[in-house]
Design a protein around this nucleic acid. Structure first.
Lengths: 218, 218
DNA sequence: GTCTATAGATGGATAGAC
DNA sequence: GTCTATCCATCTATAGAC
């Protein structure tokens, strides 16, 4: 507060840059190698900053993990909600199943494109479902408000189906999305002897929608 | 070899019991808390055996992990192969899609029933897909022979579809199975406000088959 | 074979100098 | 604020007594 403005700006910029470098390095290493397999030393080495930076800027390793988790999931939820909202606008508040599912599938698929710099964020989010801390698991299990909007839209699109059937099918669709991990793509590539190419995001989205839409209309 | 037979029997029985206790405790703790979150100390304490037992009977913590992984995946693959074989017999070597998928879904679902003592094994297997060691991941990615039989059967059942479409749809079905984790069931339970009950294995199997069969016939 | 004691390595976190 | 040095907890693995 007593420092000159210019000095403050420089300091804050340096701070922000260090914090951002730690954030990016941690997300990348966590996504690639798993939460427990990455140490604070690995992160600070990758980021080219001091060992104490993690504790200074984030408080602890777990707090850093949770901050990445919060930011990425909230960005993903916001983009999905935006697409659902647009689908609502296009169809007088009652979009068909395929457009609801497109709002669910498209954001993580676009992010996971080989040329997208959010590719690593998707892997981080997927990994957090199985390897997250108790705090993260609690947030995942209990914060379902964004999913509730999708469930409500699907129920409105298929009022003839019992509600619990719709919930189960939404669960199946989420399973399709969560299975899009590097290792699973690799396995599919081996199994199909190279016939499946993960890189074509548009084609994969269409295939997922064809499959899930048909499953919903059963 | 120089010991009396009776003494040998007793020794071997004790040994086998200790080894089995370690195996069971490790599988249970790994499945519930994750591989990296369980120490050798946790395992031996849970099993009520000595700390050195893990290294004596299995060589190392990772070797123990891999032995559990090998046994459970091979048991699962065998049961799936048996069901696929029976479906082949019932349909002159060309079973319909639904029966192929039933052979894929039924074993893990039956195991995961609340009253089945293999319930924990399914969670272990699912967890090994994301948290496994490099050795386990390598085995998962490269050992696809059992899956190839399912892929071939599906291709034969839908010769009109391009092969890569069938591979992708098989990938989607596997995603449905791998999403059957405790935390995901809990989340679905919260989302549906109690309308979904995980316990009814037969009903869940039917729901999965309805969804996936429709997706395959799209 | 079983068990105790401990080696040897690594991790998260922090005090204190600058 | 940054960085070094270090504390202290925890882990796997093993040597050696019994």
């Amino acid at each position: 507060m007593t420092e000159p403005v210019a000095a403050n700006d420089v300091t804050e910029t340096t701070q922000a840059a260090t914090k951002a470098a730690v954030f990016a390095a941690a997300e990348r290493l966590f996504a690639l190698h798993g939460f427990q397999n990455v140490s604070v030393r690995d992160i600070t080495a990758e980021a080219g900053v001091n060992l104490a930076s993690v504790n200074y800027h984030f408080g602890s390793k777990d707090a850093l993990l949770f901050e990445i988790f919060k930011r990425r999931t909230s960005e993903l939820n916001r983009e999905r909600a935006r697409m659902l909202h647009e689908a609502n606008d296009r169809h007088q508040g009652k979009p068909p199943v395929r457009e609801i599912l497109a709002a669910l599938f498209t954001p993580p698929l676009k992010w996971a494109s080989p040329d997208n710099d959010r590719r690593i964020s998707v892997q981080f989010i997927i990994r957090s479902r199985s390897e997250g801390t108790a705090e993260m698991r609690d947030a995942l299990v209990n914060d379902v408000s964004h999913l509730a909007r999708f469930a409500d839209a699907l129920i409105a699109a298929r009022p003839d189906l019992p509600r619990e059937i719709v919930y189960w099918r939404l669960h199946f669709c989420l399973g399709m999305v969560h299975n899009n991990r590097f290792a699973e793509f690799d396995r599919l590539h081996v199994l199909s002897d190279g016939a499946t190419r993960e890189g074509d995001t548009e084609a994969l989205l269409k295939r997922m929608l064809d499959f899930a839409e048909a499953g919903f209309l059963a």
